[in-house]
Design a binder for these strands. Structure first.
Lengths: 194, 194, 194, 194
DNA sequence: TATGAATGAGATTTCATTCAT
DNA sequence: AATGAATGAAATCTCATTCAT
């Protein structure tokens, strides 16, 4: 399987670095190839086209979030605690890799609509897991049984996303992870059972 | 003042239509000119360059939101009601002009970073007004006096934005304005005083 | 006659200043109009097109050289003295008006071929007068009767022109007029009778 | 070294032909590419931009003149003979390649000032060699020891250049090389020792 | 005469992708 | 598998000129 070949990851990692450092529109295929230490043409042995590289970047990294979230869901803790861990995990991963944060929050959003729709599909898995937390919370009486799950999901994700983007735009100058408790508190207030 | 010249608005309006219908990257200046019924060169009598058209689109339209929000703030109603009206107004304006909604939620975000930073500056005015609502609510005891205003603002804006974007991506197939009460309820829960 | 109208000269003079200060390719019609204190459209009441302005600039100024040269020819002095006065006059006029010098030696040469051919036609009058000096000198035994007048003319003009251009390119940093005796000496040596 | 790649020369040669036949301002990159039998984009693998092609044309060809002149300087002949051979060589090379003559005498002069200054730098090498001939002539008593070398150089170059330009403007309708003895005679008269 | 807003043709350059080696 | 030279389509912006007032 191509994803296991070393050059596949080499190119993905190169893409993140190049995009973070040069911006989306200044990240030519040839630059990514150079950073990856391969020839331009080699890129096309592992990726269908440029868009495919970018989708794969998102794919691979989102998988990380989702995998971690899956573990969280299965832990024997309250839904509220799961929600907290989700927020904290999200912030922790992006704080630890600012290249990745810049790429996902700023640069990749400059891509064309087709790519963004494709990215949204990848995101969906993540959001489905979030739904699971919400449903669990409702089921065990922690969250408001009358809330609109779809809206709650959009609120949770919108808040996390906006908070992260603001942090990136402010050039990481404060501690994002430290905001987790307050963000969780706001979100929990919004959806907790009376 | 250039903004009063009819061709200025003509071009702004044409830009919104063309971008909504063709997407950001397929909106050549010549297409906008044709839609506006002017020659390509005429665009450059009113705008410095293509980017300037897009900034102006955002400028002009965001002004609408901000103006309406200013009126809301001054009304003799509770902060919670103001928050509701803000959400409702936001949803109403974008529901009424789907071209505009598509452009602001999807297409304009594909612009380069420089433009996006410029857009953020425009947004700031809007967010400052939102802060005013939050501060008023704290002052009169409606909202939690211990909340972090910056985070609350990011939550409110993030939620509204995410909700709108999801609606646009779902091709407007449900009634966005009808979601206002529930969205407001979530947001209010999050920040209300105990 | 249009040439006598004040705006005609106004535009010619504006053109020289604008071209000298901005260079040929940065001398748009609108800039010349502004410098002349007239509307863009007004230019076209006095000149057929942009090229016509430039030809007229050359025409008008070359006339000055030719008029002075005619006077010189008619003076009761030797051909060698006439040659000297011609060189000196050429250098004096251009030293006195550096804008004009820059325009004729550098900027106007960037014009298209058609304009340059037209300019050459204007130059012809000047060169015909030079021929007269040469013929007079041969007739009265001062100059070599076997010389090729056409080549001698090209040498005289080529030398004057090259000397002036070098002086302009060296940013007028030495006294051009002071070179007249030496230049004359070289030219006279070349063509004097044995 | 890029100069050895066949496409580099191919493009240079194509540029000379296209510019000579179409004129400077009608020599689009695409025309040059077509003449060279390469794609437009290929041009940019060998040249930084359009101006770089023109500089290179001049560079390459001027080298020819300079190389030949170096050989002449080293021959065991009189300075006067060297001067003659220089004139003759100049005329011979340009007579043999009328495209090149048209380009150097007419078309390249329409380029912008920046390019012309760059071209002058290339010319300097040629003029330095000319200076060597003049100094040699003075040293061995052939040329007037009191002459101003800079002016003499400007005369020699100005004369050669003007003679060549006139010949090109007259559409090569006489034999340029045949003028060499007379041109040399004039120049030699000008500077020979008493 | 004079104005100046409007016109619209036209060219350089970039860069994702291909394919012969 | 890997290379990298070559391709060629595509779009912004300028500015000489016009013409309705």
């Amino acid at each position: 399987m191509k994803k296991e070949k070393p050059k596949y990851r080499q190119i993905i990692d190169a893409a993140i670095i190049v995009i973070a450092e040069n911006g989306y529109h200044q990240s030519q295929v040839s630059k990514i190839a150079k950073q990856a230490g391969v020839a331009d043409g080699t890129i096309y042995l592992y990726f269908k086209n440029k868009e495919d590289i970018l989708i794969s970047v998102f794919d691979e990294k989102m998988e990380m979030f989702a995998d971690r979230l899956k573990e969280i869901i299965e832990e024997p803790i309250t839904a509220s605690e799961k929600l907290f861990k989700m927020v904290e995990n999200h912030f922790t991963v992006l704080s630890a890799d600012r290249h990745l944060a810049t790429v996902t929050q700023l640069e990749l959003r400059q891509s064309n609509l087709a790519l963004r729709l494709r990215i949204n599909a990848v995101l969906k898995n993540y959001l489905v897991l979030l739904d699971t937390i919400l449903k669990d919370g409702i089921a065990n009486g922690e969250f408001d049984k009358d809330m609109d799950i779809r809206l709650a999901r959009q609120m949770v994700f919108g808040t996390i996303d906006e908070t992260t983007t603001t942090w990136v735009m402010n050039e990481y100058k404060y501690d994002l992870v430290a905001l987790s408790p307050k963000v969780h508190q706001l979100l929990f207030n919004a959806i907790k059972a009376e």
